[in-house]
Amino acid sequence: MVKVNGEMLDIAGKSVKEYLLTTNYDMTRIAVEKNGEIVPKAQYDSTILKDDDSLEVVSFVGGG
């Protein structure tokens, strides 16, 4: 199981990109942190999620 924004999800084995494509996140408005480190955008495809990984997807909203 992978913890994503505090929720346990059965997505081990998927890449970050595969997971994101199952969501409504706008890829141009997010930053992804995995186990305390940012995942470079160019590595979403090659970063495979494992059991006990912790992922946070930060989705930016406008205003400033």
């Binding site: 706008d26 141009t28 930060v58 930016f60 909203v61 406008g62 400033g64």
Partner: peptide, 10 residues
């Protein structure tokens, strides 16, 4: 702008 925020942070 949200896209600009994400671009700079990443």
């Amino acid at each position: 702008n949200a896209e600009c925020k994400a671009m700079l942070v990443n």
